[in-house]
Amino acid sequence: MSFARWVAIYGPTYLTGLGWTAVTAVGAACGALIWGCVLLLIRLSTGRWGARGVDAYVQLFRNTPVLLPIYLIYFAFPMIGLPWPAVVCGGLALILQNGAYISEILRGSVNAIDRVQFDAARSIGLAPWSTFRKVVLPQVLVYSIPALGNQTVLLLKDTSLLSAISITELTMQAKLLTEQTGAAYEAFIVVALLYLLLVSGTEVFFRVAHRAVRWR
């Protein structure tokens, strides 16, 4: 069977997979950004012990493969009475890990802000929360957009691991088709092309976003 014919027959079955990959990636990316901001806020506002706690958290998640929390949350949580749906478990695992990375990215950007600005903010009487929201956060987000783009791409590709917990995203779709037809090359080349498309789209999005805010 030629590749073109294979795509013509089985191509449409990828749409559900594409949808799940997109939904989980967008959801987890938004969640991870929020969780990363929260971790940054904890680090900046709670003194030395808060910072150590965040450090320990970041170390824990940065030094373990994300498949581990995915399995753990999905298979172990029902045993303690929390049978959340697979999408929630998988999304949560991705958020927990990528949030750790994102908080580090944001921390780097905070360090790039000139210390004088903090003094200036205090001298015009801005409260700490207002300083964070009006001075720190806008600059941090602008500085870190390229790095956040990279992290989102990594997260997008990590959604393939959700196939392990019964989510029918792109990789699972390819596995299903391979099981049905034995045509592993075709099934996975199509998936590779779709991932390439999604990743390129993500990169364009972040590039446009960066250009839009750079000159402010």
Binding site: F75, A76, M79, P83, A86, S163, A164, S166, M172
Partner: peptide
Amino acid sequence: ILTFDTPSAQFLAVRSGR
């Protein structure tokens, strides 16, 4: 229905109550 990619994951699903 839940769909898994290995029999051992199927087994784990029943064992964990999934």
